[in-house]
Design a protein around this nucleic acid. Structure first.
Lengths: 261, 261
DNA sequence: GCGCACTGCG
DNA sequence: CGCAGTGCGC
């Protein structure tokens, strides 16, 4: 059976609802992992998704952060925090099981600037993700996706020399992202696109999208069995061109899996 | 020659620009008096009006109040305050001369509630308008229009008994509105519609427009010679039904005048 | 209920 | 630049 799993930092699900529904109706992913929903669970707009036959699991808070899983198949909730409990007061993680796949929806802290406590928290959060991936390494089908706020490679920014040391392309961040991959996960977009610059985020300011001055911050990382089952991984720039868009574009992967319960 | 003069409290010209342009293109008034433009002069969107061959005179401030005159013919600026200077720090008055007609665009203070200093200011402002009308009583063609924040008669509210004493239908306000008319001005809408309930404002809350629970707060008052020249005076409820409307509807009057310089 | 201002965040 | 939040005016 074919399964499409997508990830999208929507920068407010309420502000972006029409975009998300339009995209959902067009692309029809089986699972959509959302980040920066920026809404408490009680105010999450569940109905339009449920009308489309999708389940919704939301873990949100006021104004900041917030993640959610929209899924055609029933999702089993595994947890709403890192298993260490780090930054548990911020809604940045949703762990679910869908159709025998363990999924982790993550929104890594932006970090503020490369000095200071919030950057330290970001690095620690990335370390925790590596640990988390290690804990799940016995799982056959494991997927960790979301907004990592790290551009891992030189082709994930416009100019590596200029960007070197800057937020989201700092060696300390890239090293920690590498550690996540070293647990055995595959950066699926890069696996399908081994070279060539590609971005998933463009700043709202300075006409960044028009100039295609972006970064690849949104990733789908998968276990070896899922990597083998993957048929494609793409970034859909179209919604970024719509009126009042999210600053992030959705990333999607298609898998061909043996039929599961 | 025929001349159409309209008045509209737009509740932010920037938020309502598309509505105002759509209405302008459809109804093509010669003069449009705006209230609650809520924008400083430098940020007033002049271009779309000028592209349509209209002149713009704006007298605005940040966030609150603000009046403007949009006119097919060149307007001569007479003043931006009451001649007494009362409440001169608030942009609520624009006095202009267009085609030999003296026009006064007014936005009367809402008053807050019927106790307190702001209500006293509202009453005083209405008294000043009567004085102002008296000062202009020698003018052959004089028009005073805008948002008076007073429903003068029992047919200008849904239920006079229920509304009696409430803001915008308080005896003290209605008396002062009467004083304005007693200088010789005619309430043109009432002249053409001597009976029957009609409103120009509906609260955004509680589905007031759907229930037609409104008040007639926006008026076109004219000197005897203009009253004699008037051919119609109407309230256009249509824009109030549009998406994200102003809470006020435009009021228009058509005059048949001898050709003037 | 719907504007505006301001501030924090990214 | 564009989301939130809060406070205020109408």
């Amino acid at each position: 059976m074919e399964l499409t799993i997508a990830s999208w930092n929507v920068n407010s699900i309420r502000a972006r609802l029409s975009h998300v529904l339009t995209w959902l109706d067009d692309r029809k992913p089986d699972v959509l992992l959302l980040q920066e929903t920026k809404v408490e669970n009680g105010l999450f707009p569940r109905e339009p998704f449920e009308e489309r036959g999708m389940h919704v699991l939301a873990s949100g808070q006021k104004a900041l952060n917030g993640v959610a899983v929209v899924s055609r198949h029933h999702p089993e909730l595994l947890g709403e925090t890192l298993s260490s409990g780090f930054l548990a007061d911020q809604r940045r993680v949703l762990r679910v099981r869908i159709m025998g796949i363990t999924l982790m929806d993550v929104y890594v802290p932006n970090g503020g600037d490369t000095s200071g406590e919030r950057f330290a928290d970001k690095l620690r959060f990335l370390e925790e993700l590596a640990r988390e991936a290690g804990l799940s390494s016995q799982e056959r089908y494991m997927l960790m996706a979301g907004d990592f706020n790290v551009a891992p490679g030189e082709d994930d920014v416009t100019d590596a020399k200029v960007m070197d040391g800057r937020l989201c392309f700092h060696p300390e961040e890239r090293t920690r992202f590498e550690s996540i991959l070293r647990t055995g996960l595959t950066d699926l977009f890069r696996a399908f696109n081994p070279d060539g610059k590609a971005y998933s985020w463009w700043d709202y300011r300075e006409g960044s999208f028009r100039r295609n001055a972006g970064m690849r911050l949104d990733h789908i990382l998968v276990s070896p069995a899922l990597a083998a089952a993957a048929r494609s991984c793409t970034i859909d720039r179209e919604p970024r061109s719509w009126d009042r868009p999210s600053d992030h574009a959705p990333v999607s992967a298609v898998f061909e899996l043996p039929a599961m319960e």
